[in-house]
Design a protein around this nucleic acid. Structure first.
Lengths: 216, 216, 216, 216
DNA sequence: GATGAATGAGTCTTCATTCAT
DNA sequence: AATGAATGAAGACTCATTCAT
């Protein structure tokens, strides 16, 4: 039974926190490289811990991946909120949100984990709810300003992010640069003059997105 | 020792071709479902042949994957050539090329195989050379018509295709619809009015693309 | 597609059958030594096959154990039937059944597998049904002859067999001798003069036995 | 350096004794459930202590198991002595000894530990010596009274106990009831009329029993 | 003296590849 | 030429034991 503490964790606890940090960072790296088939032993190796330490914290490989997913979703939520606050123009906020998401190693690895078809846990559901609200606000504001195409939905934003963030075989600075290059193409449009036309299909809504990303 | 033939394949040869066809189709399916870790035995099962027959034709799993890659690249090449012939406007040809590539199951699975980081073989090099030329022609024509942003390179086209084609957790008709939706977004531009600005990074060239997609 | 054959299996098939035999024998040995924690690799080693060959035939360790269980139960069934046929006196048949069961390496290992608490499969259910009927017949006959204590049930027979067969740390010829020694004690009675008295508890029936030996 | 004490343990020492008690009880439970593969961490958890505390007291898992063995043997010894004192008839004493041994959770778990094939330590040897003498006395008395079959040895008693105590997949009150049921069958004899006949094998002696239960 | 996080060896299972028929 | 059984290497996960606090 540990006495409550008011100060920051110290000693053993501090080391455990540090290790957790290292494990998550390593997991991101290795999942980014190997996809879902990332060997757990490799993650442990890069984190500088034994496999068993990793398994004590995350009882299964899936638990580890879900933790990354939650962390990514929470980071996206924060970035969406911050972008809306920092930028007077909602469209600029949207652009900043994309740029931030593609540049951050935390949010950037979201895609790799989708491939695993992990089931939605309670924690995931909660994180998703928050993310959903933040993107709703962001997109609503952009629509309100009249700068965003009327048919774009908040779910579009996540799928576009997914696509822009498509895993390149290598993930280094150049990969991020390229991601940003295509973000720019998307934002600006490939053609010089653009005119709105019929969308080829109905936009996805949150329900479809959930069904798409979560195993039954 | 097989005698040269002038007519179409018949009898055993015809059956062998048919089997090869089945194997490639099955391989595409299974790679799409399982990614690089697709079990070879599952491919053989779906093709309705024994594993050993598959291994006779493709000595390693990598050889099989490379065959798919070559097939995909050749299909892309054809589609680029045909698009250029079919459409008077080069920009329309480019759009048609994208649409075709995203809609075809053969070219659509190109991405999944990139994750394996396969080395460039001679056959790959040859196929790539042809694809490169076709895309050069396509992009040159588009530039010539003044409809394409001046800084877009042929390599951009492939990378954009890669991104647009990013694997969604499920691959069904709806996935293709979504892919086309974002193609449209890319082609039209997310914002209504667009003005050219500085690109955030220099465009990739063929050499970089090769280095990116091929293992050393 | 293999053509139907009327003769005995030959060649590859014969070898596969032989291997299956070897695997089951080895599994019996190793389960007897290590209990449920018998390493699968050790079973494969003793059978002289690779682990994967074993796993091809029995997809999980549990499947292998269940196969042993079924084999044991079927052997017991045969032994009960044969004993009843071979011996004019039902009580002699019962004694012969016990002796045979304790002496045979196949039926002798039934106990070790119970410790694993394996679930009842359809195959197990069927085998159990047959065994149950055979023991019902055996015990009914013994009761009919008046030689068996009236309160003894067929389920008692299996539980007594279980106890008589209790795993000794070593399993060799001497172990079997000892098992038979205590069988004799059980059959004859520990005391010279015996008089029936109240049973300390109600006898088990088949339902209880099933609940006892099968996981829910 | 602990000072000698004459009074009962108090304070810290009392608490340590209490913890030791809890650990042994938990160990019994967990060994009964999991057999030799009982996780040490689970034992510690049920005892409400940290693993390291357990390891301070018992340096290896084997040491812990041996402690249980010694405790069981000592309990058996006491029960044999007490039975002989409490019952005027030696045969009644023997029956009472069996009943007590099968009913007590301490002696009842002896068997589970045999499966581990633990080596004989000095402590084990000493405990065994005492147990042996007690059983010799018990059996000698029974033989003296003429009520026990002449060929029954003290080693038989332990082996019979082992068999009667064979682990059923579940260990609850009903399991004990069944154990006692078969004890009764053994004591009374399965057949109504009994006549002595030739034993099928020579009886075991202490040396054989030791060789059987102890690893080399 | 007590705690629980950390570790590496060991176990079950899968899969690319080979070989005898 | 085609088949499918056999194999060993590799990956997820567990657990006895140690160590720093």
């Amino acid at each position: 039974m540990r006495a409550d503490r008011t100060g920051p964790p110290r000693g053993r606890q501090k080391e455990a926190d540090r290790n957790d940090e290292l494990v998550l960072r390593a997991a991101r790296e290795v999942f980014a490289e190997f996809g879902w088939n990332a060997p757990v032993s490799e993650i442990a190796r890069r984190a500088g811990v034994g496999v068993a330490s990793l398994y004590r914290r995350y009882p299964t490989k899936e638990d580890l991946a879900q933790a990354l997913r939650v962390e990514s979703m929470n980071a996206l939520t924060s970035q969406a909120r911050i972008a809306l606050i920092d930028h007077p123009s909602p469209m600029a906020a949207l652009a900043a949100f994309f740029r931030g998401a593609l540049s951050s190693p935390i949010t950037g690895s979201l895609l790799a984990l989708m491939g695993g078809r992990l089931p939605a846990t309670e924690e995931i559901d909660a994180a998703e709810e928050h993310l959903r609200r933040a993107l709703d606000d962001l997109v609503d504001a952009a629509h309100g300003s009249g700068a965003l195409r009327p048919d774009v939905t908040p779910a579009d934003i996540l799928l576009l992010l997914n696509h822009l963030n498509a895993r390149l075989p290598t993930s280094n600075e150049r990969a991020t640069e390229l991601h940003l290059r295509y973000l720019d193409l998307v934002l600006t449009g490939l053609q010089n003059p653009s005119k709105p036309d019929d969308r080829p299909t109905t936009p996805p809504d949150w329900a479809e997105l959930r069904a798409l990303w979560n195993a039954p």
